[in-house]
Simulated scan of single mutants.
Amino acid sequence: MKLLILSDLHCDNNHQRLGKSIVPAVSSYIREVAPDRVLVAGDMAGGADRCIRYIEELEQNSGVALSYIPGNHSIWTDKRTDSWHEYEKLRDHHSSLIGKPLLLGTDWAVIGDMGWYDYTYREDSWSREECVSRKESYWRDAAFARWGMEDEEVTDRMLDSFRTQLEAHRDRRVVFVNHFIPYDDYVPISPRNKVWNMIRPFMGSSRIGDLLDDMPHVEHVIFGHVHYRFGTKRRGDKLVHCHPLGYTSEWQSQQIEKEIRSASCVIKL
């Protein structure tokens, strides 16, 4: 079984920046790799409808089924709806992993959900109130992610979803997918980049990592969001994969095919 891992394609944003769609190049690469399944760890585009349109376009053009979990951009909305509406629309799509583990053969399961953040990555000197203030100043979720509850409460709900599914599949080896950073190793404090330090509280939750570390049957951990390609690293008995495509302004080159190849990972089960 061969899985192709992608994240943070931002098809809408990158189309605007490049003046052309990245879907043909991504589809061509999927056909070249010829995986049994493509897993995308969030942020296909902004809002559920755009995500679904790009998911279906990729599936049609590549001929390979895709499994998706939302990122923060995926649930962005305007004042006419809320983010749960976007989340549920993505949950109900055939590509969704939300509450629907993908069982592969007799041994493996792919388990995933969006995840969220709870300010556990803030600097020690920052209060929660300072994090909220910085979010309103620096982070677009403050305007477009409309949960109707606090970030910590959203994270609690995601952790409950993870825990329930992981417990229910202790008899299988697990590939875990969420959008947000589960381990603080991937959220270092920068001595030079003040903006990065400002947005660290919104990168994920150490509680997700704590849960995964208590689950020895989780063998692969996949996430994105950070827009930095950490690659694949071993963490104890797990392999951790972070290969986001990100925005064109963050690429090492303007060669779409080269960047897509660099921002991908193949897992053979």
Rank of each mutant, 00 (worst) to 15 (best):
I5W: 01
I5K: 01
S7R: 07
H10D: 00
D12Q: 13
A25W: 03
V26W: 05
V26L: 15
S28G: 13
Y29H: 13
V33F: 01
A34H: 10
V40I: 15
D43A: 03
G47M: 01
R50P: 00
E56F: 06
S62R: 09
G63C: 13
N72W: 07
T77E: 06
R80T: 14
T81P: 00
R91V: 06
S96M: 09
I98Y: 08
L103E: 02
D107C: 08
W108G: 03
G112C: 10
D118K: 02
D124P: 01
D124E: 14
E129N: 12
E129V: 13
E130C: 09
R134W: 10
Y138C: 14
A142E: 04
R146I: 15
E153G: 02
T155V: 09
F162I: 03
L166P: 07
A168N: 14
F180Q: 07
Y186R: 11
I189S: 11
R192G: 00
R192Y: 14
K194F: 06
K194E: 13
M198V: 03
I199T: 13
R200Q: 06
I208M: 14
L212D: 04
D214R: 11
M215Q: 15
V218L: 05
I222S: 06
G231A: 07
R234T: 13
D237K: 11
K238I: 08
L239P: 00
Y247C: 02
S253L: 09
E259L: 10
S264L: 03
C265L: 14
K268C: 10
